[in-house]
Design a protein around this nucleic acid. Structure first.
Lengths: 220, 220, 220, 220
DNA sequence: GATGAATGAGTATTCATTCAT
DNA sequence: GATGAATGAATACTCATTCAT
């Protein structure tokens, strides 16, 4: 985590540094990111960089917690359209809201997901806590769905979490990769065509999951 | 593609070089792979490396075609347990057979998938043909399933292909990542527990896909 | 142009680096100059070199502007022996003064002229401004000569400039090439023999140019 | 000089090798020419190259003698338009005929002149004999001109030779550099505009040289 | 607390030449 | 006589990090 010296910096200066880092990570990943370029494009000195952060990875970890924090606040500001949603409706709302957040921070999302997916194995240990938090959220969701009788109680919760994670990532990758090619990414992600495709992807998952374990057994 | 000089090499020497390359790519991806390390660990000189290959990417492309060729031969040597399988049963058999192949070449699989997934955007053009071949196979499968009445004809074929791809990759990632932690990866992948989990992942996909488009519409 | 870091260096260190570069360019030209050798013989590290300069060419461009600046100052310190010279007398004085400067910086002159003449085609764009300044000076001279009635007004000015350039270069090459073989190059260049030869070379040019265009036409 | 093995080669194969070498030297000079590329583009093996030639320089020396021989034959096939030319008319005819030869072998000319002018200092010793032969020819000419009373007997012969050399080179450089930019170099070099410019350059030299030594003395 | 110069190992790739077959 | 694989030093340039001021 960044040193106190960084946190003491005026908001504005911090933003300049962070923006430079986001751009660098989005374009080059973590291993290939260049601290030289980051300091050059943010206008701070080499020495300062190492007075603010332990190293490259430290900067990245900061972005990661920043993303988590901002996403949480974004969700707090939004409210599900209805209070009577079942768990899958709620998940769908969450995914879509998440995609809205992603498209409004496309570079940050790109930077984080690029590193987490492609370099994740190497830096995996460092990301463990973040991943675990996400998994816990999904697990709580699926357990709630079971409690509400929306999902067969015999379902394998671990498996369901894994599937939801996979699906979330697949949709996120689709949205960022395709979205970055568009002129107005926000407009694009809100278009009927995109929303429909996300819906369909989620319905496939939903109907697969709703199918009871016992039915699985029967059909093997 | 490698130069003739490489193909002329004695089988054994070629294997040493290829193994060194596989290890390097598995650990560092394509962009960060070091030709220095490859030559050092395979015991050839720098000059020789460039007499065998055009460049780093050339080595990787060779691995890619090698993987394709070997996988094809592996499948040729196997036979589906029954001739009367429906399309999803066949797909399941294919995935499982593919996983067996992957676990018998874990490093190669890791190297290829790491590069294809994470650096795919940058080297995308070069991999296009490989990806297209896979996509064509899946598309043929889904069309067959429709023809046989196993899937509702109104299904969005593009979407279905995307889902099958996502699923195949997710299973492959699960098998390799978890499998690499085991002592005996082959024994592990054949264990009832793993086979069951793969089955369940595929059933989720299958039941999701079997659901007709019209049903999707109805439930939105 | 060199980075600020280079300009901040103590005079003495700068001189060591510049001298090493001059020697390298004089001996190997620009394309074949080795940054490795420059850093080795000037005792700085590779990293420092690139903190001082953009690249090899950057060093050379610095030498070029340095030469221009020093030559200009050298001329400022000298005064034509008489105010009543005609244009050709003035040109002769300039050439000779230039040769004095060249022989007092023989390696620098050699480095620059080697690169400008032999590699000029490749780096031509970068040198364009320097060449143009020279050409403009010569053109002003010839136009003055015409205005004063020293040269026939029908003379082809472009041609005359080209001839004067050729001649200047030829004399410069003669002085440097022959001079480098002498023990005391300054003494040699001031010797009656050399001065006479330069005079004669210039007279050939002068009488050729004084000849009017119409006379050329007549004699074809 | 090439080894006997090269001279034993069938005419056609020799030509292929020579053409590859010419192209390489024209594009890269001597020091930067790559034997690798020469053998690759001429289709011979690395080993053969070194069985034909000592090294890179050896190939170049062969080109040099080849050029001399071919130029001589070219001149033998041509005849001066009139037998009653004075020496300067003859020189003018020679230069122009030489330029015709050059433009009909532009790559060879470019290769040779590029190396002789720009890398000449380093390989100078090796080219000494060629240069000397040229100088002897020019010296004979000027002496003939004196004998015929076309040039003042008190002229400095060394100086005159040097001037003629300079002039020849300047014209040659002009013709090759400008000519290479044209579509049809042969047509261009024979155009009235180019011929006129060459004439004028030579007249300047001629009138400069015709001027007697005594006149020079008088005007100093 | 801020600076920015210094560093040497690192990168991918090309080179001319040798020599065993 | 022909081959072509092998080589290791060479190339320009970038890197993350340290540390004295």
């Amino acid at each position: 985590m960044p040193k106190q010296t960084f946190l003491n910096l005026p908001e504005e200066k911090r933003k300049i540094i962070i923006d430079a880092a986001i751009e660098e990570f989005a374009e080059h990943g973590l291993e290939n990111a260049s601290t030289n370029r980051i300091v050059a494009s943010s206008g701070i000195s080499k020495g300062s960089f190492y007075q603010y952060f332990e190293d490259k990875q430290d900067v990245f970890m900061y972005l990661l917690t920043m993303l988590e924090r901002e996403k949480m606040e974004y969700f707090k500001g939004k409210h599900p359209p209805s209070a009577n949603m079942d768990t899958f409706q709620y998940f769908r709302w969450m995914i879509k809201t998440g995609m809205e957040f992603n498209t409004s921070h496309p570079l940050l999302t790109q930077a984080i997901s690029r590193v987490m997916f492609s370099e994740g194995m190497y830096y995996g240990r460092n990301f463990a806590s973040v991943r675990e938090r996400t998994a816990r959220g999904l697990r709580a969701m699926i357990e709630q769905a079971i409690a509400r009788g929306e999902v067969d109680p015999s379902v394998d919760v671990d498996l369901a979490v894994m599937i939801m994670e996979t699906w979330t990532n697949a949709i996120s990758a689709y949205v960022i990769n395709e979205g970055m090619k568009q002129k107005d990414i926000m407009k694009w992600v809100r278009s009927a065509k995109v929303q429909e495709r996300i819906d369909k992807m989620l319905y496939v998952m939903e109907y697969g999951l709703r199918k009871t374990e016992s039915q699985f057994e029967a059909s093997v």
